[in-house]
């Protein structure tokens, strides 16, 4: 089996339990909060989207952990940096898709619990698209920020954090959402906003790979 696939599988195997537990606790917490909210307030406020927005930041952190924690380990088992990054990217994409499915799903279920109407398939699809793009952007931003520091040290990496965060900045500016998952302000039409974010993400993916492909393998996480 090829090395990239092995990287993906190992990372999934290692981090899946943590992610499932975290997500599980989130979901249970939101369901309890929703039930309580439905009893005390009318109309009940939505809680899910407050919480679900955090998923994208998790994904950014996961990217940081992958590089800080796992790159060294994989080079030590004879995997090239590029294969590691490709394998880790697949995990980022899979996690992004999983969250992008989970967000509208949870939102729809919350609407149903609150007995509300107005959650259409179109809303769901929009939330899916926005979450997917935001999660990918976050993963790549985290990855690029960490790659810069890994390759060039704290100061060099600090300078590179600005371009690294571009994808995250793009989604924050062009795809801002409120606590109910509605887009607040639209400077650009949705499709164009999504495209701009994806282009920024793709560009920074290239930056991140360029930074890491010649990196010296450090003796400890980032030291």
């Amino acid at each position: 089996m090829n090395a990239r696939r092995q990287v993906t599988e190992h990372l999934l195997r290692t981090y899946r339990p943590v992610l499932i537990w975290f997500t599980g606790i989130f979901v249970v917490g939101v369901v309890i909060a929703d039930i309580v909210a439905a009893r005390v307030a009318d109309p009940a406020p939505g809680i899910w989207m407050y919480v679900a927005i955090a998923f994208r930041y998790w994904i950014g952190i996961i990217a940081v952990i992958f590089i800080a924690n796992n790159l060294r380990q994989f080079v030590a088992v004879g995997v090239t940096r590029r294969d590691f990054m490709a394998g880790a990217l697949v995990v980022g994409v899979l996690a992004s898709v999983a969250f992008a499915v989970l967000v509208p799903l949870g939102h729809g279920i919350e609407y149903a619990i609150h007995g509300g109407s107005g959650f259409s398939a179109a809303t769901g699809f929009r939330e899916f698209a926005v979450t997917l793009v935001a999660c990918l952007a976050s993963f790549i931003a985290g990855s690029a920020a960490c790659s810069g520091i890994y390759r060039f040290g704290a100061w060099g990496g600090l300078a590179l954090i600005i371009p690294a965060l571009l994808p995250a900045a793009a989604t924050t500016i062009f795809l801002p959402t409120d606590s109910d998952g509605q887009l607040i302000a639209q400077y650009l039409p949705l499709s164009l906003a999504l495209t701009v974010s994806l282009v920024a993400t793709a560009a920074v993916t290239v930056l991140s790979h360029w930074e890491l492909k010649d990196a010296t393998i450090r003796r400890s996480a980032l030291g």
């Binding site: 060294r72 030590a76 004879g78 400890s220």
Partner: peptide
Amino acid sequence: MRDIVFVRDALDA
């Protein structure tokens, strides 16, 4: 790289 194993004192794990 697959055919090289390098064990250094810090242990890359």
